[in-house]
Amino acid sequence: MTAHLLYGGAGILLFVLGVWSFLVHEALLRKVIALNVMGSGVFHLLIAIAERGSLPPDPVPHALVLTGIVVAVSATALALAMGRRLEDEDDAR
């Protein structure tokens, strides 16, 4: 029980840290990192609750996390590409 609370708690802390960083920082890269940390927190939480109970762990959350990682990396790639586009325009000015 303690271990789950430990890992789950870490997930929640990661999420909150991400939110904090997202709100406080302006730069795109930092926001993107913040979002990824947030996402990692949620995924971490999922994996922590999957491990609850006896082995083997619940595969459903694992699959969800896999899907989530793909989604997160897609969004990150798009966001960074858009950011680059903006910077290019600024540089061209």
Binding site: Y7, S40, H44, I47, A50, E51, P56, H62, V65, L66
Partner: peptide, 17 residues
């Protein structure tokens, strides 16, 4: 952080992830 996270998840029995 990402690498470490992978390590933690490996510890938590989620090698796929």
């Amino acid at each position: 952080f990402g690498l470490w996270l992978a390590l933690v998840w490996a510890r938590l029995g989620a090698p796929d992830v």
